[in-house]
Amino acid sequence: TICAKEMAAMKKTEEYRFLKEADSIALQQALRHLDTAFQNFFKQPKTGFPRFKSKKRNKNSYSTVCINGNITLSNGYLRLPKIGQIRLKQHRIIPEGYRLKSVTVSQTPSGKYYASILFEYEDQVQERKLQKFLGLDFSMHELYRDSNGKEPAYPGYYRNAEKKLAREQRKLSKMQKGSNNRNKQRLKVAKLHE
């Protein structure tokens, strides 16, 4: 019985150690997301039962909220709790007066990481006088035709990419599940999807 008690105590300390490694706010956010999923299911059954993590849908993500300045964004670095500073490619400049609210870090099936950062700001819309007008009509051959008579000439990248994707998916379907080559091919298909 002593061994069993010691084993149970060791197991508990191991579980606590894993919980300490994770950001506490991220754990709370995961519970909030789960609660929202169940609330949506019970209020509107059409939304369906919550889907949990699986090997087939490998989109990994976690969210954390900014409390007392635990998340900062400066000099091309994003500082997250428990992880530390991460170098990032910032797509746009954040204007003055914007307050950081939360960050969601997600990993795509191809293995790339993205951070979606939510800001809060007070917006005062300034009215402007309209000077030029442009009308757009749907066109069967191209996407649209504007009121000046111009049409966009598309090079057809999407259709070519579709053909390549179909070819790579055919290769993937014929590979043995669980093999290294299948995993490499899966990454190729994921990159083409992106």
Results as ranks from 00 to 15, higher is better:
Thr64Arg: 03
Leu100Gly: 11
Gly178Lys: 00
Tyr16Lys: 09
Arg182Ala: 11
Gly149Lys: 08
Leu165Arg: 05
Met175Lys: 15
Gln185Val: 01
Asn40Trp: 01
Leu78Glu: 01
Gln185His: 01
Arg128Met: 09
Leu136Lys: 07
Arg167Trp: 00
Arg57Gly: 01
Tyr154Lys: 13
Ile93Arg: 04
Glu96Gly: 15
Arg87Thr: 09
Phe52Gln: 10
Thr13Glu: 15
Ser61Ala: 11
Arg87Leu: 05
Glu151Phe: 15
Arg92Asn: 05
Pro95His: 08
Glu14Trp: 15
Leu130Pro: 01
Asn58Pro: 04
Pro81Ile: 09
Tyr98Leu: 12
Ile67Asp: 06
Asn148Gly: 04
Tyr157Lys: 12
Leu19Gln: 10
Ile25Val: 15
Thr13Lys: 14
Asn58Met: 08
Leu31Ile: 05
Ser102Pro: 14
Asp137Asn: 13
Arg159Gly: 05
Lys171Asn: 01
Phe18Gln: 13
Asn181Arg: 12
Ala22Gly: 05
Thr108Ile: 08
Lys12Phe: 08
Met7Ala: 04
Lys171Asp: 00
Phe38Met: 11
Gly111Tyr: 10
Asp35Met: 13
Ser61His: 12
Arg145Lys: 14
His141Gln: 13
Ser61Thr: 05
Ile86Tyr: 12
Ile94Ala: 08
Arg79Ala: 12
Gln90Ile: 07
Ser147Ala: 09
Lys132Pro: 00
Asp35Lys: 15
Val65Lys: 15
Asn183Asp: 06
Pro45Ile: 01
Val125Asp: 04
Ala4Lys: 12
Gly48Thr: 06
Tyr154Arg: 07
Gln107Trp: 02
Arg167Met: 08
Thr64Tyr: 10
Leu31Met: 10
Leu187Ile: 07
Asp123Leu: 08
Glu168Cys: 02
